[in-house]
Design a protein around this nucleic acid. Structure first.
Length: 1010
RNA sequence: GCCCCAGUGGCGAAAUGGUAUACGCAUCGGACUUAAAAUCCGACGUUGCGAGACAUGUGGGUUCGAUUCCCACCUGGGGCACCA
């Protein structure tokens, strides 16, 4: 039985241990390591040296065209191609980093260094996304102001990242909390607020629909070119300020509305849809979330739904992320159908949304959501024609429809979002006493209210087709409503309808319409028959018919909701908005920005019993009266105003930070237009495509919809308004995998420190013990609670930053998740040591390379390696690139003397991954320049071919022989050689082959007679 | 339920229609050493004395040839989920 420590254990530790013991025994000195051996201690020295030198020399500064960050070359950074590579904005948490965090940062650093060596002008910077809930919660726990703890966290994270040797342009670093940055976040908000979406506007890229200044809309109202919704007969001037404000509010891209929002009493704030899990709980804190009608800020992201889907086609993103965005936006094409409803006061128009207008003939009732406005117009008494056997169920036992509706609304409000949308739940609902008229058949349909219909999708009302829809079928069954079948699935086209008795027919698009015709009527005109049509044809025909009869039209609907933009928290950007005495909002002019956070007696959010839905948000910013109530001159003399006390969500700051990297100190622009065009404009280099945008954006897939969707949305607004000229923010997206880790439990299921667990191998069985007791291995994330955290600091101490970088880059493909295994790190260390020894003598420190010409075999290996490594780097596969470099280095190790002309390109090619040791070797090899400005090697064509290749001979797909042949052997010659092989003859059994496939010079495949 | 991705030695993995297991870890053997570490050289899918046979989650298919392409299933991971 062999005992292996599963922990960080290198010969270094063992040596130190021995030194300690022997010192105690007063015995002979430890055999000293060679003085110039590449070990953790030396690595640390080298790393410090180069990190300082890079910083002093500004080795990684990206040159702007003009301004403070220009390199003075006069034009376009000396004509170099720009390359913009970014990591996702990190959140400086108080917990510090573990070895999983820097994976993406190392990857982008390798890419950055590689592109610099290709002679490009590389922009690579790192800032901090510093507002948000965790910072606030951490501050509450420690009793300090979030600004203090956040700044400490940023400093700590900077230190840890610096130690990795990342090649950032440190002049371009900032945090979202910096007033100079926040000012522009607020400025962008005012631009969005003062814009509306004109669906007819033709953009410069040829597309239709664009954000436009709200003044253009006001102009159209004034000139009468556009009628004023809700005031169709009035002139703009005849409306008072409040009415004007309300009208514009319905058009603005940032607007205030009283609508059902996600209220989370446990966090004391409202949340965006994207921040609520499918369990109906908050993503942060896992508290229940309730639907409540509250006045809140929203952003009209739905106006961009179509462009956000369509423009994905321009992007070089993982298909998986594109798909997630498409699904999240959920564009569906259908029709809005108008049903007339008799109410006590007047006839009303009830619009329903359906993707299947072809099933209108199968509609047997209608359902509106509990929040629907129609419920304000229910009759005073129950109609007399309620089927008596269903009366109790339909009325819920309430005396009047109004009472029933009121009670049902209250009940719906009390349910969590989860309870409301849980498919498992039995459908509930009540009759409203109202009837709708089917516009096609004239049939009278009872209208129910039920919470399975959602107010914020479609129109909040549906035509129920129990013959085709499972949900409607469930409801119809419970409430005794009739079922009519109007579509036969194509597969069952010959079946008669009795086959569908007792179930819904699940109406797929693959079917034939039946039972769907009507005569010409006085009211609606033409007769309509869909019978016998395929579903898609029927949809087209009925939609055209509805449109002609003015009782409906084709519409597009989105699953995506407008983005709820306000939060009732302290640690976020304040809204640059004040209200006058009439409560009309005004955005603050540019010269009054930024609006800084006020000091408040208590920045803790007001939270409630997480289950108590009957509570209201209270914004912490409202606790400072002096800040809230101000006198300002907004152009019409000093007046009293009160400030908006909400803060923006965490996403605001991360929506546009990439723009600020380009031009971080500009006090006149959000980003200088010329710099922005150079770095982001479409075709700014060959990889950016027509969309333009950041050349490479690396981050976790967890932001697939949230950050990446919001950021695209803002970018498109800024594009429409002419502030940026790329259509998309991020041209290429790459999702790095997660580094996972083993965790160990004892027999009671408690986690034990993973670093102290011992691994035992007994034959093929592996067992684990901790403190002599059996332990059990599981696989998951790295985290404090699992007691399996390994920090970068530990890795620096035992191996150095280069080995750590090398290990992370070599452990597997970047996009895959995989377990961390400290035991394997030593392999990278050994590689670096062997390379070190190939260049210099460990004992003397003297460079030992020779200037003689390498042999042909070595040259061929070198140039093939250059060729292949270049390919691997382009494809972001550092793992395979590294393995090729190891092969080359192993070959050098086997030579009697190491040729300079081979080891130098090897050092250059390894530099992106292990920059410090390579810089040191490069210097020792006699070069004065930093590797960061050294050219990437180019493979020489004449060494890429091979003298002899091994041709494989297969019979019926099995290898029966190998031949060493010249690479330019003819097919006939190779075939003859192959057929002459005794093994081939044996397998042919004396008969001539049926067929021979020759792919000279690599393969001969012989097919024997049957 | 719907959609997407993955499954290869003891382990991390390589190979995208043409020699399966490159590279690294672990393990074993050898050289060096008084000894150990380090280093260097070598072995290392299973089975068989061997020729060989069998092996890329399972079962089929296409092909002269399949880890790679197609179909079905199993397992694991992820996304969406009363969206009309």
């Amino acid at each position: 039985m062999v005992v292996v420590r599963a922990t960080v254990s290198t010969y270094m530790e063992i040596m130190r241990h021995m030194a300690f013991e022997q010192g105690n025994n007063g015995q002979a000195d430890v055999p000293a390591e060679p003085e110039y051996r590449y070990n953790a201690e030396l690595a640390q020295k080298i790393e410090d040296k180069w990190q300082n030198r890079w910083q002093q020399q500004g080795s990684f500064w990206a040159a702007n065209l003009d301004g403070k960050l220009t390199d003075g070359s006069g034009k376009h950074a000396d004509g170099r191609t720009p390359y913009f590579v970014m990591d996702m904005f990190p959140y400086p948490s108080g917990k510090g980093l573990h070895v999983g965090h820097p994976l993406g940062y190392i990857a982008t650093d390798v890419v950055s260094r590689y592109h610099r060596m290709k002679g490009e002008n590389v922009l690579h910077a790192m800032g901090y996304d510093a507002f948000g809930l965790p910072a606030e919660q951490y501050a509450v726990q420690t009793g300090q102001h979030p600004r203090i703890t956040t700044e400490q966290n940023i400093a700590n994270m900077r230190r840890q990242l610096h130690r990795l040797g990342l090649s950032f342009d440190d002049r371009r670093s900032f945090a979202t909390i910096d007033p100079g940055y926040m000012r522009w976040t607020q400025w962008i908000f005012t631009k969005i607020y003062n814009s509306w979406y004109d669906p007819e506007f033709v953009r410069k890229d040829g597309g239709t629909g664009s954000a436009r200044p709200i003044d253009e809309l006001v102009g159209a109202f004034k000139s009468g070119k556009r009628t004023i919704p809700g005031h169709e007969t009035e002139s703009w001037e005849s409306l008072d300020a409040l009415e004007q404000s309300d009208v514009l509010n319905d058009f603005r891209l940032a607007y205030i509305s009283k609508s059902p929002v996600n209220w989370c009493p446990g966090l004391g704030t409202v949340l965006a849809n994207e921040e609520v899990t499918s369990e109906g709980r908050s993503e942060r804190g896992n508290f229940p979330v309730f639907q409540r009608e509250l006045r809140q800020w929203s952003m009209r992201i739905t106006a961009y739904g179509h462009r956000l889907i369509a423009d994905l086609d321009m992007l070089d993103w993982p298909e998986k992320v594109k798909l997630m965005q498409r699904n999240w936006i959920g564009e569906s094409h259908g029709a809005s159908v108008h049903f007339e409803v008799e109410t006590p006061s007047e006839p009303k128009d009830m619009k329903v949304y359906t993707t299947r207008p072809d099933t209108l003939f199968g509609t047997t009732f209608a359902v509106v959501s509990p929040e629907h406005s129609l419920l304000d117009s229910v009759p005073e008494d129950w109609p007399s024609d309620i089927p008596s056997e269903h009366r109790a169920l339909w009325t819920g036992g309430y005396a009047t429809p109004a009472e029933a509706v009121h009670a049902y609304r209250l009940e719906a409000e009390k349910k969590t979002s989860k309870d409301r949308v849980d498919e498992q739940n039995e459908k509930t609902g009540l009759f409203t006493g109202l009837y709708a008229t089917n516009p096609i058949t004239g049939a009278k349909l009872p209208i129910f209210t039920a919470d399975y219909v959602l107010m914020d999708y479609g129109t909040g009302a549906i035509m129920a087709v129990p013959g085709g829809d499972d949900r409607d079928y469930d409801f119809a069954t419970k409430y005794g409503l009739p079922v009519v079948y109007t579509v036969k699935p194509l597969a069952d086209a010959d079946d008669d309808l009795s086959n569908y008795e007792g179930k819904s027919a699940f109406v797929s698009h693959d079917g034939i319409v039946i039972n769907s015709s009507t005569e010409r009527t006085e009211r609606l005109g033409d007769a309509l028959s869909l019978d016998g049509l395929r579903v898609d044809d029927a949809i087209a025909r009925v939609t055209a018919w509805l449109q002609k009869a003015h009782v409906g039209e084709g519409t597009v609907s989105y699953r995506l909701r407008d983005w709820l933009f306000s939060r009732q928290r302290y640690w976020g950007e304040p809204f640059p908005v004040v209200y006058d005495d009439d409560n009309i909002p005004h955005t603050l002019p540019d010269n009054m920005l930024p609006v800084n956070l006020p000091e408040v007696p208590d920045y803790t959010p007001k939270t409630y019993d997480p289950e108590d839905a009957e509570t209201n948000p209270e914004a912490p910013l409202s606790r400072n009266d002096e800040w809230v109530h101000v006198t300002l001159d907004l152009g019409d003399g000093p007046k009293r105003y009160h400030r908006d006390t909400n803060t923006m969500p965490n996403w605001a700051g991360s929506c546009w930070y990439y723009l600020r990297y380009i031009d971080p100190d500009d006090s006149r622009h959000m980003v200088d237009p010329a710099e922005c065009e150079y770095w982001l404009g479409p075709h700014h280099n060959e990889t950016a495509g027509t969309s333009g945008g950041v050349d490479l954006y690396v981050g976790g897939v967890e932001h697939a919809v949230l950050h990446l969707l919001y950021s695209r949305f803002w970018h498109k607004i800024l594009y429409d308004l002419g502030f940026v000229d790329s259509m998309e923010p991020f041209h290429k997206l790459f999702n790095q995998g997660m580094i996972q880790a083993y965790a160990y439990t004892d027999s009671r299921g408690q986690y034990v420190p993973a670093a102290e667990v011992e691994e035992h191998q007994d034959g093929s069985d592996t067992t684990y013990t901790w403190n002599g007791e059996p332990a059990f291995r599981e696989f998951g994330k790295m985290g404090k609670s699992l007691k399996n955290i390994i920090t970068p600091d530990e890795m620096y101490g035992t191996y150095g930053a280069d080995t750590f970088r090398l290990y992370e880059m070599s452990m597997g493909p970047l996009s895959e998740s995989r377990p961390w295994n400290t035991r394997n790190v030593i392999g990278g260390m050994r590689f670096l040591q062997r390379l070190w020894r190939n260049v210099l003598d460990e004992n003397s420190g003297e460079v030992k390379v020779v200037d003689e010409q390498p042999d042909l075999k070595t040259l061929k290996l070198l140039h093939n390696t250059i060729h292949d490594v270049t390919e691997e780097m382009e494809a972001m596969r550092p793992n395979t690139a590294i393995s090729r470099l190891i092969v080359l280095n192993n070959h050098l190790t086997s030579l009697k003397a190491v040729p300079r002309s081979v080891v130098e390109p090897l050092v250059v090619m390894l530099a992106p991954v292990a920059p410090h040791i390579c810089e040191e070797l490069w210097e020792k090899l006699g070069h004065a320049d930093s590797l960061s400005s050294t050219q990437w090697p180019v493979a020489k064509e004449q060494y890429l071919g091979k003298d002899n290749v091994t041709a494989v001979v297969q019979v019926k797909g099995k290898i029966r022989g190998k031949l060493e042949v010249s690479p330019d052997i003819s097919a006939d010659e190779l075939q003859a050689l192959a057929l002459a092989l005794p093994a081939v003859q044996d397998h042919l059994g004396g008969k001539p082959p049926r067929k021979v496939i020759v792919k000279a010079p690599k393969i001969v495949s012989v097919v024997p007679q049957l």
